[in-house]
């Protein structure tokens, strides 16, 4: 027993020597945050992981349901049906809005894309701690991957939307191609928001409890089931409120999609400078969110 040291070994190397030794052999501090260019490079190297993870999550989503993948299309349609019943029939917001059903369904689908991206983003880190603690990869892969899953989900919904549009007599037109840039911009915005929420959700899990309320409020002011331009046309609103309603990113992306798809939704119904606003929001959220997320990279999954 006398050989056993009760205290740490007394002949420890002085701190400077160990540091110098580590430096000499090119060892780095464990768990340190990589530089931004290095981080982007690592993330790019994991692009196959991001897409494979999104696809796997999407297909696993309804794997326990009897109807399986049918729910990919059923869920958004049922959502739209509920909103139609409440807002279209009971509250009568459809008065004065031409092609109300396509108008509503487009709004619901586009809004759902942003809403669910933010929701899954909030739990992207806190809900996947096992994965985060087991394997090393740039953590931004998780929120981005979850947004990609939501985008795939939206594409399913869009297929259903096209059928609805054709059923309600909306003609196919060249403006449908505008869907692509609109979706690219919205995806960038959503990914940025998801990364911001992922960092906040990782530090304060309580955020996840709060998000449904914030998102519902946001939905009601975004003109998902009513027409913003009808409201702003009446001039009893303060200017500030009008500007806020029109530059709201969710409203911008929803109106862009309506403009692209529905022939009776005219350019004059769009908020002013709509493409500039859509691009601005995408860049602001995308770049800002990415940097904000990267700043805390070394803290994810700790404790």
């Amino acid at each position: 027993m006398s050989q056993v040291l009760d205290t740490p070994p007394p002949t420890q190397a002085p701190a400077d020597d160990l540091k110098a030794l580590a430096a000499r052999h090119g060892l780095t501090v464990s768990g340190a945050r990589p530089s931004l260019p290095e981080y982007i490079r690592q993330l790019w190297a994991r692009r196959h992981f991001i897409t494979a993870f999104a696809t796997a999550k999407l297909t696993a989503q309804y794997s326990q349901a009897k109807l399986g993948q049918v729910w990919q299309v059923m869920t958004p349609l049922l959502n739209a049906a509920v909103y139609y019943f409440i807002f279209g029939v009971l509250l009568g917001t459809k008065r004065g809005v031409p092609d109300y059903v396509p108008f509503l369904v487009t709004g619901v689908f586009v809004w759902t894309f942003t809403q669910s991206s933010i929701q899954v983003g909030t739990r992207a880190i806190s809900g996947n701690l096992g994965l985060v603690r087991a394997l090393h990869f740039p953590r931004a892969a998780l929120p981005i991957s979850f947004c990609l899953q939501q985008l795939q989900q939206l594409l399913f919904s869009m297929a259903a939307l096209v059928v609805i549009l054709l059923c309600f007599g909306v003609p196919v037109s060249a403006s449908w191609l505008l869907v692509i840039p609109a979706l690219v911009l919205q995806f960038t915005f959503n990914a940025g928001m998801a990364m911001i929420m992922a960092r906040m959700g990782a530090k304060t899990p309580d955020i996840a409890q709060l998000m449904p309320f914030i998102l519902r409020t946001w939905m009601y002011v975004s003109g998902v089931m009513w027409s913003i331009d009808k409201l702003t046309a009446k001039d009893h609103l303060p200017h500030l409120v009008t500007v806020a309603l029109e530059t709201n990113p969710a409203a911008v992306y929803i109106d862009l999609m309506r403009f692209a798809l529905i022939d009776s939704f005219h350019a004059k119904q769009l908020p002013p400078h709509v493409w500039a606003a859509a691009t601005g929001w995408a860049l602001l959220a995308g770049i800002g969110g990415f940097i904000y997320f990267w700043k805390a990279e070394e803290t994810y999954g700790r404790g």
């Binding site: 701190a15 160990l18 540091k19 580590a22 052999h25 090119g26 060892l27 780095t28 501090v29 464990s30 768990g31 340190a32 603690r133 090393h136 070394e298 803290t299 999954g301 700790r302 404790g303």
Partner: peptide
């Protein structure tokens, strides 16, 4: 690198 150290350093290859 999954837990922060209070003091000292861990260097790894």
């Amino acid at each position: 690198g999954l837990l922060p150290v209070e003091s000292g350093h861990i260097y790894t290859n």
